[in-house]
Amino acid sequence: MQRKSLTFITRQAPYGSNKAKLVIDAALAAAVFEQQVNFLFMDDGVFQLVQNQNAESISSKTIGRVLETLELYGIEQALVDSVSLEERDLSAEDLAIPVKILNVEQVRQLAARSDVVINL
C-alpha cells in the first residue's frame, strides 16, 4: 500500500458533540495502516488539551486519556495552531499533553504538503 501523508485537523471542543472523538478514531485507524499521520489542534479543538479534565461528571470519557494514546499508535507529535491558543488565552503550560506549537506559516505549509487533509 502506498504510504500517504494525512493531516487530521480537530477543531471542536471535546464533549458537546462526538466530533472530537471521531477525528481521533480516524487518525488512529490511519496510524494502524502505517500511514504518515499528522494531528493538528485548531480553533475550539485546543480546548481538548486543557489540563485537569474529568468527564466522569458528565458520563463521558476524558478526552485527554484518549489523546495520550496517540503516541502509542506512532503519532509522535501532536501539533497545535498558535493563533487558536492565543485567541483563547491559552499557552503551552496549560496543556495536558506535550505538543508542538506551529505558527501560521507552519500550519499553512503542513496543510499544503499533506496528501489528504481531514478537517472536522
Binding site: 496510524a31 494502524v32 470519557k61 476524558t62 486519556r65 495520550e68 494514546t69 502509542l72
Partner: peptide, 8 residues
C-alpha cells in the same frame, strides 16, 4: 486510556 488497544 479507557479503550482497548489495537495491536500497534
Amino acid at each position: 486510556y479507557q479503550m482497548a488497544p489495537a495491536s500497534r
